[in-house]
Design a protein around this nucleic acid. Structure first.
Lengths: 343, 343
DNA sequence: TGTTTCATAGTAAACGATTACAGCATGTCT
DNA sequence: AGACATGCTGTAATCGTTTACTATGAAACA
């Protein structure tokens, strides 16, 4: 391994000078700089990032701690984070917590041990509540979740607005008996449910707790909960799910019961996924600006790393309602479907 | 920050002893060990992994270098890798190369700079050919791609077999004019195409180069190529795509031309994805054992890290053919569909 | 008893960079 | 000319560990 010493020797200067050339570049004569760079080139020298990190107490690694990379939302975000990080010379350490507070704690500690420059994190409510007590020595940017009363940078969808718009869209299209399937571990599900309830109230409908379920944000849970809804005495005429996993489970269940969308039941969800637009009818949803979320979170983090004293920012992005056939207006539905519709 | 010195002081021993207690545990009296561990506990000491890595020239970080984490195959694999790595106390550095040899080189160098213990990599053919010349100081396990003539651990689907079985399945179900859309940058597409050609030959059909397209493994490319196929004078009666992105693009195009699957055209692909089973008809495909691939690759890597001299292994896993409605037998297709079928 | 062996523990030298400090020119100001 | 600032460079300390080496005492062995 060629080290800074070898370069110094080859260039006939001290290691300090080599370091100066390679990092800040201050206080070096152009001629010496050229000699050093030539030596670097000739020897194929590459600075050892571990040594640099140890000495300077600052690394070029960011942590990305999400519940599950297989959730398409996080997949997309992680790609954006990695791209943005790479552009600034940072690399990304990836962790999956499964919304498990213990794993979250373990990984945050790991991040500290690894001396990361900062972490982008989608925490559970439990961990968020205790996050100040962990006194981590790196900044955190929270994504996808609200952090009320906590002094931390946050990049977030306007979840209440999104839930409101999605529900209003259903109401305007003639659906009245709307069930909501929400993820249970984060604030996100709750906020989207809040938007849902506000929309109902705005239409003089009273939200019933019967129709709002908080469940694990997994396909299987969405599937099971939907079956239960569909088999109830008073099944809903529309289902809103607050993430794509729940949406996929709901769709499975609807298919299993041989119901038609949207004639028998409408389905709307969150997050643009491959399946939501490929399925027939295509699924109405609120698309999150995942690339922008990832990029913004990374930028906020890097800015905070550069200036730890700056005031924290809360960036709230709007989702985009993609109205598709799965929530088509009731009165525009074909005769065929009315024939087959249940009571 | 509490360092090993503080612990040593608190326990009334030297730093060497603390280190011995915490790493190998050899040559320490039980009583002293207890005192040290108590001090560790009391002070909340956590070893600085950066310092450890610098001194021991060995880290607990693995690299995962894939073309694009958004490809569901890699998403699933990465999750499995992260899980397996975590169980062994390793963390995972994630990179996306977009099948770009330049980015691959940059990231491999980065891995070296970060002093990773090893890398799991799905390389382009170009990089693979030059990989020995890079003389990296860490072991690599190649996934998803063959590495003929290169002395490296590999975990791989039996791609020829998979292509053969998928094509044979189509042939047995009465399809005769089968087009293949293959990813262009890796050996994988080529191998699957080879299986496809072998299957045709086994049925006394001669594969025409007209019907085998090598394109970028992206939805848009699959979409465009499929449109071209469908609009040709002699459109195929079945399309085989060698990855899920191409499959999604093909499905889009088929929908756009208002064709029925499988009556007008059958569609088969690779990789189990959410959409492939949600779409109607469900898509026939070869499911890769992604979890096993990720886990096996991680295990091979860790074993090689532990013993760099062991002989390299080539692990070939079989895919699972999930026959679904998108490739239903021609003679079992309904009348309705025959009515609407093209020439 | 004298010699070896071995477990235990400490001392201090790495690992490969950054950086505080000092030294020496050179230029500027009075 | 003398004082002082400024630009360039080298020396050496430092980051927090691991680990080679050494020292000590006890056990084992002849």
């Amino acid at each position: 391994m060629v080290s800074i010493k070898d370069v110094a020797e080859a260039a006939g200067v001290s290691t300090a000078t080599v370091s100066r050339v390679l990092s800040n570049g201050q206080h070096v004569r152009p001629e010496v700089r050229k000699r050093v760079l030539a030596a670097v080139e000739r020897l194929g020298y590459r600075p050892n990032l571990v040594a640099r990190s140890l000495r300077s107490q600052h690394s070029n690694t960011l942590g990305l701690v999400v519940s599950d990379i297989r959730n398409p939302f996080f997949t997309e975000v992680s790609r954006a984070v990695e791209d943005a990080a790479y552009e600034q010379g940072y690399s990304v350490l990836l962790c999956n917590t499964d919304e498990n507070p213990e794993r979250e704690a373990i990984y945050l500690n790991l991040m500290r041990d690894e001396n990361v420059a900062g972490v982008i994190f989608s925490p559970t409510r439990q961990t968020l509540a205790r996050i100040a007590a962990l006194d981590l020595n790196f900044p955190i940017v929270v994504i996808d979740r609200a952090a009320p009363g906590i002094d931390v940078d946050v990049v977030l969808l306007d979840n209440v607005d999104a839930g409101y718009r999605l529900t209003t869209h259903l109401l305007e299209n003639g659906y009245r008996n709307i069930a909501a399937l929400c993820g249970e571990m984060s604030t996100t599900g709750r906020e989207r449910a809040a938007g849902y309830e506000q929309a109902l109230l705005a239409h003089n409908l009273s939200p019933s707790s019967e129709h709002v379920k908080y469940i694990q944000p997994k396909i299987e849970a969405g599937h099971a909960a939907t079956l239960k809804l569909l088999d109830a005495a008073q099944p809903p005429d529309a289902i809103l799910t607050t993430n794509s996993q729940l949406g996929a489970g709901a769709l499975q269940a609807i298919r299993e019961r041989n119901l038609n969308i949207p004639e028998d039941i409408a389905l709307v969800t969150f997050d643009e996924t491959t399946w939501a637009s490929l399925v027939q009818p295509a699924i109405t949803l609120i698309a999150q600006p995942t690339a922008e979320i990832g990029r913004t979170a990374t930028e906020l983090l890097l800015q905070r790393i550069a200036d730890p004293t700056r005031s924290t920012r809360l960036v709230i992005l709007k989702g985009q309602l993609l109205a598709r056939a799965s929530s088509a207006p009731r009165n525009m539905q074909s005769e065929k479907s009315l024939r087959g519709s249940r009571m």
